[in-house]
């Protein structure tokens, strides 16, 4: 239990997808105009990460790794399918995103319109594939750990995008040089936030 908690907290703060690894920046920068939209996208990312990481974990454990196919029979012990990693992971992610897209389109047309092209782009949100690849690389022992890691990373991403959205809502009242308004100042603020988040690095839990 303690271990799961530490994986979760690590995923949110210390190994924050946005500020520590700078993954998933495109939708982060483009959709962070208002807190509401960001919240919606953040929840979608949590949902997708929370499902794809455990699914990819099972795939990795029972299909991809060398010797993973032994459950089919001992003659498969030397089959190594790791070269299919990218294709399979991305296929799982894409189908999940497609699912989320259909759900959002049905239940919240406003959010659907607000997200625009960035909804299907969750599929190529590097944070999502990054989550699965990190999971594979860190070789988590149980399905539970992988799931918690996925959820933690998702919550970290949500936190980051909601934070920047809140800042952007406030900054509208400030006198930013005209050419920097909007995207430009967002880039710079994110850079500064990234530097601030570096203070979490090196903390061991």
């Amino acid at each position: 239990m303690e271990e799961l908690f530490s994986i979760f907290v690590k995923g949110i703060f210390i190994e924050n997808m946005i500020f520590a690894y700078f993954l998933g920046m495109c939708s982060y920068l483009a959709v962070s105009r208002t807190v509401n939209t960001s919240m919606g996208l953040g929840l979608a990312v949590i949902f997708v990460l929370g499902i794809t990481v455990p699914v990819d974990y099972m795939l990795n454990k029972y299909v991809l790794q060398e010797g993973a196919l032994t459950w089919l029979g001992p003659q498969f012990a030397t089959v190594d399918l790791t070269f299919l990693t990218f294709i399979l992971f991305i296929a799982v992610i894409a189908s999940m995103v497609q699912l989320v897209e259909m759900i959002i389109e049905k239940f919240s047309p406003t959010l659907y319109a607000n997200l625009g092209i960035f909804l299907p782009l969750i599929a190529v949100n590097c944070a999502i594939l990054g989550g699965s690849l990190f999971m594979q690389e860190r070789a988590y022992d149980t399905l539970g750990q992988a799931t918690v890691f996925g959820l933690g990373s998702g919550v970290g991403w949500l936190l980051a995008i909601v934070a920047i959205a809140a800042i952007r809502e406030k900054i509208r009242y400030s006198n930013v040089p005209a050419p920097l308004r909007g995207l430009g100042i967002t880039y710079i603020i994110t850079g500064l936030m990234g530097i601030a988040f570096m203070s979490f690095m090196g903390i061991k839990i």
Partner: peptide, 28 residues
Amino acid sequence: ILPPAALIVVGVIIWVHRSKHKELLEDN
């Protein structure tokens, strides 16, 4: 050489870019 610096450099490029192309200005 840290990743946040890239964000700041891109931010500056946007600044220069948009002062040349006024039609791209945003308002928030």
